[in-house]
Amino acid sequence: MSSEAHKDYAGAKLGMWLFLFTEILLFGGLFILYAVYLFFHPKDFAEASNELSLFFGTLNTVVLLTSSLCVAVAVSALQKGNRKLTLILLAATVGAAVLFLINKFFEWSDKISHGIFPDSPILTERVPGEVVFFGLYYITTGLHGLHVLIGAGLLIWVFFLVRSGAVNEKDFVTLENAGLYWHLVDLIWIFIFPLYYLIL
């Protein structure tokens, strides 16, 4: 449509960053709730937090941080013209996303099999602070999981663009923006991890 032949890199990145701000504020709403309810029920939050699997939490943190490294290096690799390395790293990132979701699945199913899910008879028997902790846990990690899914979808799309050469060392802003989105997913998890798994 536009007669401008070249792309506006700074514009594309500015737009992406603005969009990331909206994502931060979206999770921000949940963090406001978390802060207030932690203040109301500090003991209950610690009790409930201890029931979450520290192992899965830490493992997923490592998985996401490492996948973030892969994406960051993938951008540099493409800028240097190393398409093969870029593709390998993108595939690794998507693999990490899948691993993350599998872990999450086990974690959730473990909780659900113990009867801990929103509005379950076992959960509603417990003290209010723990109920709201698990409510927030499901909503926050659920929304985050959704973002992992979207991020992985974006990376798969970019993978094919890189492979076909539509995204290359001269025109890599799409990869960079998809990478930014993936880092955001990581960023949110960096806060979810201590707030939900490490409260004592």
Binding site: A10, S76, Q79
Partner: peptide, 10 residues
């Protein structure tokens, strides 16, 4: 509009 080369991070 400037076409930015982009900084390559090692």
């Amino acid at each position: 509009m400037d076409l930015e080369a982009g900084h390559i991070v090692p």
